[in-house]
Amino acid sequence: MSLRVALVLLALAPALAAQKPAQTGPVPADVHFITGMIPHHAQAVKMAGWAVTHGASAPLQRFAERIAVAQRDEIAMMRTWLRQQGRPVPDTNATHMMMQHDGMAHAMLMPGMLTDTELAALDAARGVEFDRLFLGFMIRHHEGAVSMVDELFASHGAAQDEFVFRFASDVFADQTTEIDFLQGMLDALPPPSRP
């Protein structure tokens, strides 16, 4: 090591020690996004779980298994993050987002989520009709997740937290990719049967 390098390193050491990490914590929009994405994911996991029992085609069963594994893991990550922030942590199987409004607790559906009626219709379908309903609903569901990312990124102070930015960007990238894939499967289905 040259003398110059040694001197510079000596000078660097205290400077490095004095550096502070970015002082940018999560804002309410971050917490809202993560909290709302848990029931959003939980509904996708529930829908995906029906693929086997409701006679979905083999390609859809495979895809549904991936959705179930991926989103179940992501629910665990989101719950960990909320716990670390000291925030209320929704249940793993929560299907609605609880929001306070005018002093009352309301159970809200996040964008793209299925209503109880739509869920019942999906639950009643079998075979190719299950495929058709599932694909249409899941595309809408994914588009809803993408719109939640849009809303997050348009909020003041949002996604400065690295977990939130990375997670939201991955939701955007993964789910736009999956919408493409789901649409391909939907296009390949036979035309709907008419009575």
């Binding site: 990490p21 970015a22 002082q23 940018t24 990124f153 996604a159 690295e162 930015f165 990375r166």
Partner: peptide, 12 residues
């Protein structure tokens, strides 16, 4: 990331 600054600042 959304927090990167042109001036390399850490404040986001």
């Amino acid at each position: 990331g959304l927090s990167g600054r042109l001036d390399c600042g850490t404040q986001g």
